[in-house]
Every structure is written in structure tokens, then in C-alpha cells.
Nucleic acid binder design. Structure first.
Lengths: 213, 213
DNA sequence: TCAAAATATGAACAATCCTCACATTTGCAA
DNA sequence: TTGCAAATGTGAGGATTGTTCATATTTTGA
């Protein structure tokens, strides 16, 4: 909450640059804008989110919104960036100490559960990662995030299976991670019961792959 | 190619109904509309596709477009439906005769290769299935298609592993299939070389799962 | 032959993203 | 304190684009 990386970082990769809020006042307003956007996304999805509505709910003018965000997607991007930063720390912590097969098994299993609960509970996160395929900038962010997360997994695998070609382990980790995200998206788009079964099946499949050979 | 299911079938699930083309003339025009849309999607993606441009390129008025398609998404949907129908026949044929592990291995491997090549070669298909996450109707179509395809796989598994609980096999087949689609989408969004490696890794992972126990 | 149904048309409407010229507030050096 | 430059705030209006609808034309079938 303290620093809240300026939304400008998003624009560097997304659209024409905007000013970063430098004053206390504007920083608070940007927070309100993001909060309003978040609420609206939770209610109706990011596609139905209207810029005018975001401004109104944040108590600012439409012009102020565009002072800090170059376009609509940049707002979603800024929210997405926060989620990735948050979850990355959590994943790193969960996998850091793992050094044997049992450790990996329980750590990975728990990680999947946490992610699944997160997807079920956070409509905003769910919406954002769903739109990932359509929006190029979001897709890039997700890929970068996924690679970073996969690296933690790769590190564990390298310790567990030093004999295997590192490049192969990297590919495996990345694929397993991406499959996990896909499994989550699938799971939340079907009946809860079937979703649970699918996540459990993914867990088995992933662990079989991670611990194989 | 012969009947080309009237685009109306899409609307039943998507938006307000439109007239189905009943005359030869209008059927040909609808074909031109779809062809124009397909070309535009291939060039710029379905998001950048403009209704006015579709009409112009098809040589019809904008009003005629809306005579047969209730909205923009319905056009994409109609194209998607054709792809699913086509590929489903191909998949059914590939898996129909499989009755042992080796057969499954080679059939599945070939199927993945075909799909991968298709994804690489068909920008329209690629674009449509990418937007799948964002568009609810498309997502439903993809899920239904995926379930249908997974059923062919389930049938094979039931023959190969009669001792296992059928419900488990269904879940496995559905998950493996969805993971495959996710792997394809991932593969085509990274460098070709890495994409190839990822698809190969998926193939190994999927076969390990399908032939396990 | 002719009326009803089907089809064709495109100007106009409506929704919405985003810009811009101008007003206000804040930070800070003199 | 004062004054000015930089930062911030505003909202009407430009621009794009999906969609409708009143009207005109063509086809069908009796």
C-alpha cells in the first residue's frame, strides 16, 4: 500500500506516456481511480467498465483519469501488475525452501490450492486474467509473470534432478505453470464440483510430470 | 461446404434473432460476408475488424449484414462454428479405431501435430480461439467443442483401462484436451523454437497421463 | 399478374473512448 | 510573503464505430 508503483510503468509498454503523480493529492486520487475501477470490474467485468463511470465513482473528472492513464487498458494493466507482484512474492516464499520430492509435493499442492481459492474469491483477478488472451500488453505481462514464477519451480527441479538438462527442466516448469493457469481458468468457468475435480486432476498430472524420471 | 448451417443457429445462443437466408441470392451474399470477415480477421484480427469494412468488402450494404447477423460477435461465432465442425470430424476419425496403448500414442501424437500446424497456419482460427476467454458465447462454444472432442478420447481410455472409474477417465480426458488447447495458444505466442519445445513437452506430459496406471 | 414475403439500402442514431484548451492548485525560489 | 512555473483538474466536444429503421427493390407463389 505504501509506495504503489506509479501507473506510469504500465504505459512504458502500453501506450503514449502520461505524467506520474508526484503530489500527495494526485497519488491519493490515482488510488481512488484504481479502487473505483476495481469495484466496477468486480461488478460487471472489465469489458463493461466505462471510463466515465470510473471517473464518477472515483469522484474525479474524466480528464483527470486520462492525466494518469493513457487509455482504458492501462487501468486494467495497472491492477494486473499489482496482482502479479503480490502473488510472485507468495510463490517465491512457498518454493524457496523445497529440497526434496516430498517437499515439492506438499508445497506445490498447497500452492495450487491457494491459487484456486484466490481465483474463486477474487472476481477482479479472474476477469483480468481471462482477458489476457485478447489484450496484447496483458498477455505479455502474464507471460513474463509466468516465466518468473516458473523459474522458482525450475530452481527446485534443478536441485531435485541435477542430471537432467536444465533447458528441459525450464521448459517443463514453464509448461506446468501455464497449464496450471489454464486449469484454473477452466475450473472457474464450469460447475464448482467439476472445477474441484479438474484442479485435483491437474495437480496429479503436474506432480507426476515434475517428479518423473 | 454444401449446406453451411445458417448463421441463425448462432443467434439462438447469442443475441436477438435474425432471418435465415432462404433464397439462393441471399445465401450467396451471406457467404461473401463470411469470406470478407474471414479475410479481415486474418489481416488485422477480429477486434480490429470493422462492420463497415466487412460490408464493403463483401459488396453489400451495412444493413444487409445486420439482416443476417444480429451483431458483430455473431459473425465471429459463425466462423468459429465452422471450424469446430470441421475439426471435430477430423478428431473423431483419428481416434475412432484406437484400441491399444501404441495406437493411442501414435494417434494422439499425430493429432497434436496436426492441431499445432493448423494453429500456426490459420490466423483466423488462432484469432478466434484467442478471443475465447473474453467472449462468453465463444467460450461456451469452445467448451462444448472441447467436451465433444474429449469424449472421443474418453472412449479410447475406457477401452484401454476398463478398471478405472469412468468419471475419472472423463475428467482426465477433458483436462488433457483443454491443456492441449492452452499449450497451443501458448506455443504460438512465443518464439517458434520454444513453441515447438513446449508442444513436444505437452505431448509427453499428456501421454504420460493418458497411459498411466 | 400481382400481392405478400424476403431482401437491400444507407442515412441517422447512440454509445463510448479520448483530446484539448483553459482553469485551478501546489511547490518553491527569491 | 510573493510570484511564477509546474503539476493537476475540468468537461464539452471530436472522432470512431456498432446498430437501427423507414423505405425501396426483388423474389416467390398462387
Amino acid at each position: 500500500m505504501e509506495d504503489t508503483a506509479a501507473p506510469v510503468s504500465a504505459q512504458e509498454q502500453v501506450a503514449s506516456p502520461r505524467r506520474a503523480p508526484s503530489q500527495q493529492r494526485s497519488r491519493e486520487r490515482v488510488e481512488r481511480m484504481l479502487a473505483a475501477a476495481s469495484a466496477l470490474i468486480a461488478e460487471q467485468g472489465s469489458d463493461a467498465m466505462r471510463m466515465g463511470e470510473v471517473a464518477e465513482r472515483a469522484g474525479v473528472s474524466i480528464g483527470s483519469l486520462y492525466q494518469f492513464f493513457p487509455d482504458k487498458r492501462a487501468i486494467v494493466w495497472a491492477l494486473a501488475e499489482r496482482y502479479t507482484a503480490e502473488s510472485q512474492a507468495c510463490i517465491s516464499a512457498a518454493l524457496a525452501g523445497v529440497s526434496d520430492a516430498e517437499g515439492l509435493q506438499s508445497a506445490f499442492s498447497e500452492l495450487v490450492d491457494i491459487y484456486y481459492r484466490l481465483f474463486l474469491a477474487e472476481p477482479v483477478m479472474r476477469d483480468i486474467w481471462s482477458g489476457t488472451q485478447a489484450d496484447k500488453a496483458l498477455r505479455q505481462l502474464e507471460l513474463a509473470d509466468s516465466r518468473a514464477n516458473a523459474e522458482f519451480l525450475t530452481a527446485v527441479l534443478k536441485r531435485l534432478r541435477p542430471a537432467v538438462d536444465p533447458a528441459t527442466l525450464e521448459t517443463t516448469a514453464f509448461l506446468v505453470w501455464q497449464m496450471g493457469e489454464a486449469a484454473m481458468r477452466l475450473a472457474i468457468s464450469v460447475e464448482r464440483q467439476e472445477g474441484d475435480r479438474l484442479v485435483a486432476a491437474y495437480k496429479r498430472m503436474a506432480l507426476r510430470e515434475l517428479l518423473a524420471e
